[in-house]
Design a protein around this nucleic acid. Structure first.
Lengths: 225, 225
DNA sequence: GCATATTTGTCCGTATGTATA
DNA sequence: CTATACATACGGACAAATATG
């Protein structure tokens, strides 16, 4: 390495992780669709890296459940099954409801994060930026989980949402599903602001259960097509 | 492959995972103590494997938070900090309490698993097998978490307990802490059997909070010695 | 502070076995 | 059966960072 900018030691990143980052991005933005086969040769020559390094990147993403490793069939972008989808919502119910239930007092940071997420979603909806509605909704629920204040739980949920994005990209009907988020989230925010945590938990749980049903139905139909 | 009984095709395991298993065992049984540096050369020659393979095993264990990786410094057995310890108990509170709270009816499998764990712990305690008391206690709480029925949550909790074992090995005072488990667990079992889930949740939460306090205090003292 | 040895990070080429077209 | 593509594992090379005398 010549007289480079020299990264300050700490945040140096391995090649494998950089490659994993590139692929992760392509998957999360939907450029690489579930089921797509990733050819070793194509990527190694395309990125100018060795097979060994690529395999390490693959391993990282398989651990994040973004890629699937079928035995001698190579690596493919993960296809989330119906069982997985149900489990993902089960995890959301357990964690998010627990977060709301455990609140004693809404912290300032939580309040602003929730508030901003709701406003952003409304703005985005007005202008028809449905993808932005989705990310704002994500931030809203991340803020809810963040109220627990547990790094480990935050990390688990990041993975859950990464998996759910795979589902959303298969559905590609952002509008109908994302519009519901807005009203539910602002209702939740109101309940949290007035301190009615019990009712907030109920609303959240009901919403998550019905969202699960909706997605399971839509996903089941989309899958066998 | 000829008519081999050997591995039945599907559950073939990679060398990296086998090596990871060996190291995991050494860590979980306390033979490799937190802070120990793992030399690549030593292990590759000791186990007769290549560096690449070992590094893959390292990667797996780093992912499980049993090993720590500092760039250009290699890997060491993870040292759990006080913040981590508190977070681990926070995760237990959220998940385990949610599991108890969410029960509508105790399933047969859950009942037998809980019952057996309590009996095993009592037997082991009578004979002074404190390590076995610990594993029986672990099985009890795994059974509680299992009531949720979520593979992802089960996996998360397996990791949580693996991290907690690192703490317990630093403390090495099994008796005083494990004796409490027995009475609390059998009380919990009774409450679950009579269907008083609300009270069971309270007992569990109280226990976990007090256990956290106890361990944090003991760990803080053990650390700066 | 300096020179040297050791360790780690990265990447490559290859060998063997297996599954698929 | 052959050719192809992939999985796995090994050993080696070389640069960069670190430890050591």
């Amino acid at each position: 390495m010549a007289a480079g900018v020299e990264w300050a030691g700490l945040d140096r990143i391995s090649t494998a992780e950089r490659v994993a980052g590139i692929l992760r991005d392509q998957i999360e933005t939907g450029k690489l669709k579930p089921g797509t086969k990733l050819s070793e040769e194509e990527i190694t020559t395309g990125l100018g890296i060795s097979r060994n390094t690529l395999r390490e990147a693959f391993r990282l993403l398989v651990h994040e459940r973004l890629l699937e490793h079928r035995f001698n069939h190579g690596v493919t972008v993960r296809m989330v099954g119906l069982d997985d989808l149900r489990d993902l919502y089960q995890v959301r119910r357990v964690i998010e409801c627990s977060a709301v239930r455990g609140v004693t007092e809404l912290s300032d940071t939580a309040r602003t994060r929730l508030h901003e997420a709701v406003l952003d979603a409304q703005d985005a909806a007005k202008e028809g930026r449905w993808a932005d509605v989705g990310t704002a909704n994500l931030r809203f629920h991340q803020a809810i989980v963040g109220m627990i204040g547990s790094p480990r739980i935050d990390e688990v949920m990041r993975r859950v949402w990464a998996e759910l994005r795979l589902v959303w990209h298969v559905l590609d009907d952002p509008r109908t599903s994302f519009e519901r988020y807005i009203s539910v989230n602002s209702e939740l925010l109101d309940l949290l602001l007035i301190g009615d945590f019990t009712r907030a938990e109920k609303v959240l749980k009901t919403y998550l259960t019905s969202a699960e049903k909706q997605f399971v139905a839509a996903y089941a139909e989309a899958s066998h097509r």
